[in-house]
């Protein structure tokens, strides 16, 4: 930055020096002769300017300044470091890809495993419920059968003769009431 104005400044001086030579005005050239050396003196200036403009953090390290240590704790809201790279962070190397893949696969395996476990548990519960329901139905049927047989036994033991009579009448009655049906 400091160089530009100097180069610009040096150019006119050269032009002035050349123009008078073209116009052949000898006295003027003689008068401006002494100021010519300064261009040679101008040259070291940029180096001086550079030394002046060197920022303090380049001149001293923080340790040399012996400053008291600042609070380095980052507040919860600030997640990004101030000197962190801006923009997108690409994953182009194989290793980076592989680590991400390994993480994803581990997560997926865990998910599938938990899903399977859950499905197995639900299946077990369902099976237990089914067995219980079957048992209940079986018990009901057994009690019904028992009741039936009990009723039968009661009937046989209580009125044996009456039963025989009814059997006789039932066998006689159908013979009397028998009807014949003829087609055509």
């Amino acid at each position: 930055m400091a160089l530009k104005p100097k180069s610009g400044g040096s150019k006119p001086s050269i032009k002035r020096s050349t123009k008078p030579a073209g116009s052949s005005s000898a006295p003027k050239a003689k008068k401006k002769g002494p100021p010519r050396p300064p261009p040679t003196q101008h040259k070291p200036k940029p180096t001086l300017a550079n030394t002046k403009k060197k920022p303090p953090h380049l001149r001293y390290t923080e340790k040399e300044l012996r400053l008291p240590q600042l609070n380095g704790i980052r507040p919860a809201g600030v997640q990004k470091l101030p000197n962190k790279k801006k923009g997108k962070h690409f994953v182009d190397d194989g290793d980076g890809m592989r680590t991400i893949l390994a993480l994803v696969m581990a997560e997926k395996e865990g998910n599938i495993e938990s899903k399977m476990m859950r499905a197995r548990q639900l299946e077990e519960i369902r099976e237990a419920k089914r067995v219980e329901a079957e048992k209940r139905v079986e018990g009901k049927r057994a009690s019904l059968e028992e009741k039936k047989s009990e009723v039968k036994r009661q009937k046989r033991g209580g009125s044996g003769r009456a039963e025989a009579e009814t059997a006789q009448t039932s066998s006689a009655m159908p013979l009397k009431k028998r009807k014949k049906v003829s087609f055509g």
């Binding site: 997108k88 962070h89 994953v91 182009d92 991400i100 893949l101 994803v104 696969m105 997560e107």
Partner: peptide
């Protein structure tokens, strides 16, 4: 361009299904 890390994760997540 190559994928960013979040994009890579999303892609692999889907492929791993």
């Amino acid at each position: 361009r190559p994928l960013t890390d979040t994009e890579t994760k999303t892609l692999f997540d889907k492929l791993a299904n």
